[in-house]
């Protein structure tokens, strides 16, 4: 048994959520950018991939609906994951994604660590930046959904809110989208692909497992906790099959290329349209 030990990090459902979010997010980013930049030549080209401006809008609306459905399912999943007999531990324990005071301490310690002035914080299963990733999407999606539905049904909206709320909805939708796109395509992609410990790709979100040796270095508190609770064997996982690896590497790099392309072209053409 000279195999590298792996432990499970994401369940199949977790990975399915991430995968569907990836696909829908990229489609929304492309169709959305196509519409923002429609008056510059580039936006037309992006829209043409989806069959022109009108079809790109249609795709944007339907995929938006899919995203909302996915978000609703995710909420149900969250509810199902709460252990009501041990509520406090379930909400604020180390396996929960809810930020705690400990995360603030870790962040503070890591800022010193950047300059080599203190030791690296002993991170548990979810580091503060991973929690930030999660909650950024969590709050971004309802905002985009709400403002998107408002603009999709302007007559209905203006029955309950004054028409000028559509101006604000448009601004919020666009600004939140630009925020999400720039965060994902700069920060999230850097963390997932480019930083030295991840390069060429952090596979955890696709394979579902991480190599124990690596995680002992990055998330020592998690491994320590598993060892102390004697659960290390129960979370042992098999290495992903090679064919599967090939598929997710290709998929990951297609996503990366799409994102970088949209980001660079978006910045290059930003002078030609009114972003707001």
């Amino acid at each position: 048994m000279n195999q590298t030990l792996r432990i499970k990090r994401f369940s199949k459902l977790d990975r399915l959520f991430h995968l569907s979010l990836m696909v829908t997010f990229l489609i929304q980013a492309a169709t959305g950018f196509g519409r923002i930049y429609a008056t510059a030549g580039w936006g037309q080209k992006v829209c043409n991939v989806f069959g022109g401006y009108d079809n790109a809008s249609l795709v944007h609306h339907w995929v938006g609906g899919l995203m909302m459905a996915g978000f609703a399912i995710h909420l149900l999943y969250l509810l199902s994951r709460i252990r009501w007999n041990n509520l406090w531990q379930s909400l604020f324990g180390p396996d929960s994604l809810i930020p705690t005071l400990q995360d603030a301490r870790h962040l503070w310690q890591r800022l010193w660590w950047f300059f080599g002035l203190r030791n690296a914080p002993k991170l548990d299963r979810w580091a503060y930046w991973e929690k930030f990733d999660y909650w950024a999407v969590f709050w971004g999606m309802p905002l985009l959904a709400l403002t998107g539905v408002m603009m999709l049904y302007p007559f209905w909206t203006s029955q309950y809110l004054p028409g000028w709320s559509l101006n604000i909805a448009g601004l919020l939708h666009r600004a939140e989208a630009i925020l999400a796109v720039s965060y994902i395509f700069i920060v999230h992609f850097f963390i997932g692909h480019l930083r030295p410990t991840s390069f060429p790709m952090n596979q955890a979100m696709f394979s579902g497992s991480v190599i124990l040796e690596e995680v002992e270095e990055e998330k020592p508190a998690w491994v320590e906790r598993l060892k102390k609770e004697g659960r290390l064997d129960t979370v042992a996982a098999k290495a992903p099959a090679l064919w599967y690896k090939v598929i997710y590497f290709i998929f990951g790099y297609v996503a990366l290329a799409t994102g970088i392309y949209l980001l660079i072209m978006g910045i290059a053409y930003s002078g030609q349209v009114r972003l707001h």
Binding site: F155, S158, G163
Partner: peptide, 12 residues
């Protein structure tokens, strides 16, 4: 915008 209401028309 067929069916526009006064509130709808308050769009700036």
């Amino acid at each position: 915008h067929e069916g526009a209401s006064a509130s709808y028309a308050a769009y700036v």
